[in-house]
């Protein structure tokens, strides 16, 4: 699980299996890939409202529920205008072959 080591202390975007997105400083992680983010916020995307940034200050995410952890390129991130973005929520990764 050495993979997350080089992200420690950096701002990361964490995608969870229910399709939500969290941004925060990667404070730590353990062997089950549970991770702790500080100065965190949740970005809520929707088609009829611009992106909402919801402050969560600090958050622990269970490793089971993590889809991806991405390192943020700060320069690029600054140029992103979230208040102009409309998008659908991501699908869940659970029972992905089930036909509804």
């Amino acid at each position: 699980m050495s993979g997350l080591k080089e992200y420690l202390g950096d701002r990361v975007k964490v995608l969870t299996s229910d399709g939500r997105l969290f941004i925060g400083l990667l404070e730590g992680y353990d062997q089950n890939m549970n991770i702790v983010l500080t100065k965190s916020e949740e970005l809520i995307f929707s088609m009829d409202k611009p992106t909402i940034r919801k402050n969560t200050s600090g958050i622990l995410i269970r490793g089971d529920d993590i889809v991806s952890v991405g390192m943020i390129d700060e320069d690029l991130e600054k140029s992103v205008e979230y208040n102009k973005i409309f998008a659908t929520n991501l699908k869940t990764t659970k029972r992905s072959f089930k036909i509804k």
Binding site: M71, E74, V80, A87, L90
Partner: peptide, 8 residues
């Protein structure tokens, strides 16, 4: 998927 913006 703007969730992946600014990620390298």
């Amino acid at each position: 998927y703007p969730q992946f913006l600014a990620l390298k």
